[in-house]
Nucleic acid binder design. Structure first.
Lengths: 338, 338
DNA sequence: AGAGTGTGACCAATCGTTTGCTCACCGACC
DNA sequence: GGTCGGTGAGCAAACGATTGGTCACACTCT
C-alpha cells in the first residue's frame, strides 16, 4: 500500500506557475488580493481538479487557532452526556469547529492529564460537563486564560455556565409528591460537593417547608449517582421504623436502584412507595412501572454552551454569562398508578 | 482576562542561555545529544519550573504525525459505541494518542464531510464503527492510503477488522429457542447491506435447517435497528394467521420494540412469545421480563482495534488482519420464565 | 514627457519544533 | 608541536500556510 501525501500549496503553485501566496489568497477569498480573472479561474480549476484541502496543522500553527473544541465528561456511558455532546457537535460543526471528547471516568487525575494534553494541543476552548463546587481544575483554567464553559454543573460564580434550574426541579419533584398526599418523603441526595445535588436538595427542603412538613434528617441520605448506591441507600430507608411513602432521587440512576430495592422488599410502586427521578434518561420510560422524572433540555445545553464558547473565542473575551433553563416534570407510573 | 501564551522553546532557550535545539534534545531525551550533566540539570530544572509542554501543533507539523486517532460512529446515543470508544481511548491514551469522536447520525453525507475534515486535520488513523458492505467511504480510505480499522461491521475483504462471529451468534440465539421447543421462530432482520445483519440472519437460517425446521419466508421481516421499527414489524408478525411463538431480533433495540408490541397485544413473555435480542445493552437487563440476548465483548473490540491501528501507524504498513471474537448467550426471563 | 496611480503578483518572515551538520575547544598521542 | 578524536553545543533548514510589504508594469493626467 502506497501512502499518499496530500498535495501542498507549494506543489500547487509550481503546477499553476504562480506563487503559493497567490493560491492561498484564492483559497481564502482574501479581499485584499486583486487577481486577474484569468489567473483566478486557472487556480480554481486546479483546486477543483486536485481536491486541495489546506493542512489544518500548518494553518493552526500560523493562525494560533486550531478550530478544535474539547468536551470533558466523567462518564461516556451516561446518555446525558451523549445528548449534550450532540448539541455541541451540531453547533460546532456549523461554525467550522471540530470537537474532541475526553472521558475522565470520574478520576480527577485523568481529568488533569486530559487538561494538560488538551492545553498542549492548543484547543481553542473547553466545555466541562461535570465539575465540582470550587473545582481546582476550573481555577487552573482561569489562571491559564483558557476559554471554557461549564455545563450542567457549576463550580462557583464567574464562569460561563449553562444548566438547569435544579432548585426549581427539586421543588417540582417534591411538590408533586406532596400533592399526591405524601408526608414522609425521603431524598436520595447527591454529593454536597456538586452544585446540582445541592440545589435539588435545597428545592426539596423548600417544598417541604412551604407545605408545613417538618424535615426529618434520617429521610435524607447521600446515595451517589449509580444504580447500585441508590439501591443500597433505599434499602436502608425501608428498614426505618417509619419508612417513607415516597422518595425523590437526585438522578434517574439512583432512582432505578431505589426502584429495584422497593420491589425487592415486596412493596408496590407507586401504591406503597412512589418514586421521582431526575434527567429523564431513555431507560426511565422503560421501567415497570415507568419512572416519573424531571426532563431537562439537554441537547439545548450542548447547543448553547458551544455557542457561548465560540463567542468567547471569536470575541477574545471571557463572558461570564449564566444561562439557566427550566426543567419539566414528566409524570409516569412510578408516582401515579395508571 | 489576560490571555496567556504558553512558554515556547525559544523563550526557554533565552532564559537558560542555550540554543533551542539543546532544550528540545533534553525534552525528547535525544540519544544523539551529548550534554554536560551541568547543563542538563539546569535545563531540567527550568523545564520543571516553567511546566513546559511542547506545542503539539508545531511538533505535528514537523513530524508529519499528529498523534490523533478518530473514531466514526453512526449514533452516539447507542451504548454499544460508547463502550467501544472507552476501549479505544484506554489503549490510545497509554500510547500517547488522543481520540476524536465523530458522530454521523447515520447520514452518509455527514460521514463524508467528517472524513474530509479528518483528512485535512491529518489524523494518524481512523476507526470506523459502522460501515456498510462494499462501502464507498472505505474504498476512498484505501485509495487515499489512510490507515483505518473497521470495527463491528465489515465492508468487504482486505480491510483490518475487529468484530464478533455474528453467524455463530445468530445460531446460538436460534438454537436456544429451538431447544425450548419453539418451531415457529420469527426473525426481525437488519439491513441486507450490513454485514452483521447478514451474518446473524444466516446463522438463524442455519440453525433452523439443522433442526429440520422449514424456514417460512413470512416470518423473516426487515425491522431496522430502532425500537420503533421493531415494534411495528413485530405488530405485523402478530397479525399473521399463524403467529410465531418466538422471535430473534437483530439487535436489542428492535427486541425492545418487539417486547412492547407483544405486551400491547395482551400476550405474555415468554409464555406466549419468547424474545432474544443482540448486544446486551444496559437496558436489556432492566426490562420486565429482562431480555435474553447475546453479549459481545465490546470494550475488547475497542482495545483491539486501537492496537491494530497503532500498529499500522507505527509500522507504516496496512495489515489486513481480521479478529473475530465469540459472542455469549445470556439467558434471561424473556425466553425462560424464572 | 514625467509624475502619479492602479493592478497583479511575488517575496520573505513567521508560527514552534525537530534534527542533520558544523564547529570550537580541549586533551592526548606520535 | 602538529594531528587526531571526542565532547558539548550552536546553526539552519525544514514542516505548510498566511500576510504585510514590495515591486514591476501599464496606464492616465497635466
Amino acid at each position: 500500500m502506497t501512502s499518499f501525501r496530500p498535495i501542498t500549496l507549494k506543489e500547487l503553485a509550481a503546477r499553476a506557475g504562480v506563487h503559493p501566496s497567490t493560491i492561498s489568497r484564492v483559497v481564502n477569498r482574501d479581499p485584499v488580493l486583486r487577481v486577474s480573472a484569468e489567473t483566478r479561474a486557472r487556480i480554481e480549476a486546479l483546486l477543483e481538479e486536485t481536491d486541495y484541502r489546506p493542512d489544518v496543522v500548518a494553518r493552526s500553527l500560523r493562525l494560533r487557532q486550531t478550530f478544535v473544541l474539547a468536551m470533558i465528561i466523567p462518564d461516556i456511558t451516561n446518555p446525558l452526556f451523549a445528548d449534550i455532546f450532540m448539541g455541541i457537535e451540531e453547533v460546532a460543526g456549523e461554525r467550522g469547529y471540530g470537537v474532541i471528547l475526553a472521558n475522565t471516568g470520574g478520576s480527577a487525575e485523568r481529568e488533569r492529564t486530559h487538561l494538560r494534553s488538551l492545553q498542549s494541543r492548543r484547543v481553542d476552548g473547553l466545555i466541562l460537563a461535570s465539575v465540582s463546587l470550587r473545582d481546582p481544575s476550573v481555577r487552573w483554567l482561569r489562571e491559564q486564560g483558557i476559554k471554557h464553559v461549564l455545563v450542567n454543573r457549576y463550580s462557583g460564580p464567574g464562569d460561563p455556565f449553562v444548566g438547569a434550574d435544579d432548585f426549581a426541579g427539586g421543588m417540582m419533584a417534591t411538590r408533586h409528591l406532596v400533592s399526591l398526599g405524601h408526608r414522609r418523603i425521603a431524598h436520595l441526595a447527591g454529593s454536597s460537593g456538586v452544585s446540582t445535588a445541592v440545589q435539588r436538595r435545597r428545592g426539596y427542603m423548600a417544598a417541604l417547608r412551604e407545605s408545613g412538613i417538618a424535615p426529618e434528617p434520617p429521610l435524607v441520605v447521600e446515595a451517589g449517582y449509580l444504580e447500585d448506591t441508590g439501591r443500597q441507600a433505599m434499602g436502608l430507608l425501608l428498614e426505618l421504623p417509619l419508612p417513607p411513602t415516597a422518595v425523590f432521587a437526585v438522578n434517574d440512576m439512583a432512582a432505578m436502584g431505589a426502584h429495584a430495592a422497593i420491589l425487592d422488599h415486596g412493596l408496590r410502586i407507586p401504591e406503597d412507595v412512589a418514586i421521582v427521578g431526575y434527567n429523564d434518561v431513555p431507560l426511565a420510560s422503560r421501567l415497570a412501572p415507568p419512572l416519573t422524572t424531571l426532563r431537562v433540555p439537554v441537547r439545548e445545553f450542548g447547543r448553547i454552551s458551544a455557542e457561548m464558547l465560540i463567542e468567547q473565542i471569536t470575541s477574545g473575551r471571557s463572558i461570564p454569562r449564566r444561562v439557566v433553563l427550566q426543567p419539566e416534570l414528566v409524570i409516569r407510573g412510578s408516582t401515579v398508578a395508571p
